[in-house]
Structures are given as structure tokens and as C-alpha cells.
Design a protein around this nucleic acid. Structure first.
Length: 297
DNA sequence: AGGCAGGCTTTTA
DNA sequence: TAAAAGCCTGCC
């Protein structure tokens, strides 16, 4: 395998929902950052990095490095169209979000319909389950800027230092091995507070195979939640976030403080999970973003 | 048994 | 100063 780095660029037309700013602010990903140029984001996912620029009129430019030191070069046979399948899957481009939004009846559920209109452009990314596990353990009782800071500090502490396709440095999300090797003193610099011991416990659980995240891709929703909540520091809410964002169980429905307020105010009879099966997680994301944006004014 | 109050680290607004 | 994509422990 050649260690020669090839920088790749592809312009794609995305017909379906795809709004970079809305996804970046949606609270499902914490390592999207605005790049210097307008309408451009640098996205770090696992060990890899990609730039995406909104060119307008549904066209997007993708810029990535073909070489992944962790995975080797991605052969063209594993591309999907003009970008690697790895990235195509990350953005969940196989799923038609417009049709999923269209299932909402504005007369039957006007609140969710308004939320989905406001949230048009959001997608549920297919992110790495280990990265989601650690990210959402860190998220508890923190707001989103604080979560980003902690994750970045952890990546700088024990993630692999790399160079992206524009020659900028970044730090890969740390491996379970790297996290489990940390002492509590080393981890203290990340300012995780009481969550630090949860992060270490999760890394050890993954390493000693008391939890097998990849196997949960095939597991029922209930079994998945039970397995995840068996990890010290993981409750029902975090387990649902890992299920939705890391395992792409798009029926998972994390209930946090924002969603609880919405359910109390707008769904006094209970949220109609049966009606919205198997897309509850996507609708949850519209509700979450809507509530936060209403609060922000 | 299962539900509930209190505590937990730190940052943000 | 209160709140933040919560969870654990101990008490009843």
C-alpha cells in the first residue's frame, strides 16, 4: 500500500435535504467547525477529515485526503460515485429525508410539521459508535460549547496527530486503547469533572469486550439500550443518543431536558411513537433543533 | 421493588 | 447565579 497522499475533490449535486449549518448546530456532532472560507465546514469524524463547501443551488464541494493512515488508501472500487463510500455513508446519502418529512401531516401534528419545516436540511449522520459513546457521556449536564471543548481536549491529549488535505493539523478521535491507558490525573486536564471516571470505565468496557458496540448494529432497540446502560455512567438518555447517532437506529428517541419540555407542552397525551415508527429519531431531531432555536430567539 | 432527592465538575450566558 | 442533549448513590 503506497503511503502517497492524494488530495481529492469532488463536486456533487445533492437533491435531498443537506444543510451544513443546521447539521453542525444540531447537537449530534461536535467536531464540525466553520472553515475560513464562507459556507465551508471542516469535519473530523473518527480518524478522518473532510471539507464540505456549500456552492449554492444544491451543489457541494467535498475535499478529502485519499490516504487514511489508519485504514490505508481507499480503492476506487470502494467509492460510491465520486466520493468514497465511507463518506457517502457518513452523510447518510442513501436515505431520502424529504420523503420522511413528507410523512408528517400538518393538520394532524402541526407542531412537528413546523419543526420539520424549520429543520429541513438536517440529516442523521452515521457516526462511529465508540466516538458517540464517549461524546454523549461527556455531554451530560453540559451545553454544546462545553462538550466541544472537552472532546477537543481529549483528542489533543491522546488522539493521533494528523494533517488534513489542506495541510492543516488535526487530532483523530482517540482509540479505546489510548483512552483506557490514561490515568485520572492525565484526564483531569480535559476538565471532564465527574464524567472522567465514566469515560475511563467505558473505554475499559470496550477493551475488555464486556460491551461489543459493533454487534449492537444488529440488535433490537431494547437490547441495545440494555447493553449500553450496563456501562457505568451511561443512562437511558445517553444510550439512546448512542443508538441514534452511532448505531443509526433511527427510531431511537433520546429524551433530554428540551424534549421533555416539548412533550409536556405539546404532547400531553404522550408522543405518538407508533404513528412515527420507524423514524422517531429523525423527528426527535427536528423537535430538538426547533426547541433550541426558539429559545435562542 | 422501584421511585425520588441530593450531589456531582465545569462552563456558559 | 442558574442552567446545561444526566447519572449514581442512598434512602424510603
Amino acid at each position: 500500500m503506497l503511503k502517497k497522499c492524494t488530495n481529492c475533490t469532488a463536486d456533487l449535486r445533492i437533491e435531498d435535504d443537506f444543510d451544513l449549518a443546521k447539521i453542525a448546530d444540531s447537537g449530534q456532532c461536535f467536531r464540525w467547525e466553520r472553515a475560513a472560507q464562507p459556507a465551508c465546514y471542516r469535519i473530523i469524524a473518527g480518524a478522518d477529515c473532510i471539507y464540505v463547501t456549500d456552492l449554492g443551488e444544491g451543489r457541494f464541494r467535498f475535499e478529502w485526503s485519499e490516504l487514511s493512515e489508519r485504514d490505508g488508501c481507499v480503492p476506487k472500487s470502494e467509492w460510491n460515485g465520486s466520493i468514497p463510500k465511507h463518506w457517502f455513508d457518513y452523510f447518510d446519502f442513501d436515505t431520502d429525508y424529504r420523503s420522511i418529512r413528507a410523512k408528517i401531516d400538518p393538520a394532524e401534528d402541526p407542531y412537528l410539521w413546523r419543526a420539520s419545516e424549520a429543520g429541513r436540511g438536517i440529516r442523521i449522520l452515521r457516526q462511529d459508535p465508540w466516538e458517540m459513546l464517549i461524546s454523549f457521556i461527556i455531554s451530560q449536564n453540559k451545553n454544546i460549547p462545553g462538550i466541544r471543548r472537552c472532546i477537543e481536549a481529549l483528542a489533543r491529549l491522546c488522539g493521533e496527530r494528523r494533517t488534513d488535505c489542506r495541510g492543516e493539523e488535526y487530532y483523530a478521535f482517540p482509540t479505546p486503547e489510548a483512552v483506557a491507558a490514561l490515568s485520572e490525573e492525565e484526564l483531569a486536564g480535559c476538565k471532564l469533572g465527574y464524567r472522567g471516571k465514566y469515560v475511563l470505565a467505558a473505554a475499559r468496557a470496550v477493551l475488555d469486550a464486556s460491551i461489543d458496540l459493533d454487534s449492537l448494529l444488529e440488535t433490537s432497540e431494547q437490547e441495545t439500550i440494555e447493553a449500553l446502560t450496563g456501562i457505568y455512567g451511561v443512562g437511558v438518555k445517553v444510550a439512546n443518543c448512542v443508538s441514534l447517532f452511532g448505531l443509526h437506529h433511527i427510531d431511537a428517541f433520546p429524551v433530554d431536558v428540551w424534549i421533555r419540555r416539548i412533550l409536556e407542552a405539546e404532547y400531553p397525551g404522550g408522543f405518538p411513537f407508533e404513528r412515527y415508527h420507524p423514524y422517531c429519531g429523525i423527528y426527535q431531531q427536528y423537535l430538538f433543533a426547533y426547541a433550541r432555536n426558539q429559545a435562542a430567539g
